Amino acid sequence: MQSLPPSSSAFDSGRAAEACLVAEFAGGRTMLRRQHVGYPLHVTRGFYLDAARPDLLTLYLQSASGGLYAGDRLTLDVAAGADTSLHLTTQSATVVHHGRDAASVQQARIEVASRAFCAISSEPYVLFPGANLSLDTIAVVADDAALFLADGIAVHDPKGEGRSFAHYAARLRVMRPDGRMLLRDSGRIAGEQFLKGPLGTMAATATALLVAPKERLPSIALLARAVDACGCLAGASEAPNSAGLVMRILAPDAGALARGIEAAFHVAAAAALGVQLARRRK
């Protein structure tokens, strides 16, 4: 495939890349049984970081480019098999560059099988002036499985001229393997609207979702306190159809938001797995 500089001209149509990760439980721990990862994405070797849960596999999803560019189309397909314990995270925040009237699109499909635990906690997307980002996620979660999912954005103008991103949209659907819909969550906002202050003085926001049986959920108060302690403002409630918990997070910047997402992950994982996990260094 011929490769062109990602921002070389107005005629660049962006890149298409796909990452497919399949985890299975074997030999007493979770193994990455199959992977297919296309440029610019890269997955590190697997890490087993938790003495209390030696079966838990941690993977870092990395980008070999400078972020998301106009017209990029990235697809992430993650399957956590029965009895697996998997944590997928990113190595750092992802910069989203000027969209030049072509959205950067990231789609994700996540399958979490019976008795599995799957956490996907991404560092924030940093929206530069003119950025146009669209996220579309579908998750299929077994009744007795647990999924933690967090995505967030932060705005940044390197020149400090008050310029805004162009557009941001996100759609999330969570269902059971039989096709029963548990929840839908969608929203969109233009950069000009964002600058008018819907978040007040905050420049970053995220949604964290925990789908799990009731006995594997943390208390809302505990979850909110942990995130608030990172300099964020957090509010959580029960998800529709008794699916779990949904949390909205506001933060003054990308760094505080990343710390808040990490705190939410650790509280959610402790409730779902019954142990405190080690810090994920980046």
Rank of each mutant, 00 (worst) to 15 (best):
L4P: 01
P6C: 04
P6Q: 06
S7D: 15
S9R: 04
S13D: 13
G14F: 10
V22N: 11
A26C: 15
G27L: 11
H36C: 12
G38M: 10
F47L: 12
A52M: 08
R53E: 08
D55C: 13
L57Q: 03
L61H: 07
A64C: 13
G66K: 02
Y69S: 06
D77C: 05
A79Y: 09
T84Y: 09
S92C: 12
V95D: 10
Q106Y: 04
Q107T: 07
A108H: 06
A116C: 13
A119F: 02
I120G: 03
L127Q: 03
S134N: 14
D136Q: 07
D136H: 09
D143A: 10
G160E: 00
G162R: 10
A166S: 15
H167I: 02
Y168M: 06
P177S: 04
R180N: 13
D185L: 07
G197I: 11
A204K: 01
A204L: 02
A206W: 01
E215L: 00
P218E: 01
S219W: 13
A226V: 00
L233Q: 14
G235A: 01
P240Q: 06
G244M: 04
I249V: 15
A254N: 03
A256T: 10
A258F: 00
A270R: 08
A272T: 07
V275I: 13
V275A: 11
Q276G: 09
R279C: 03
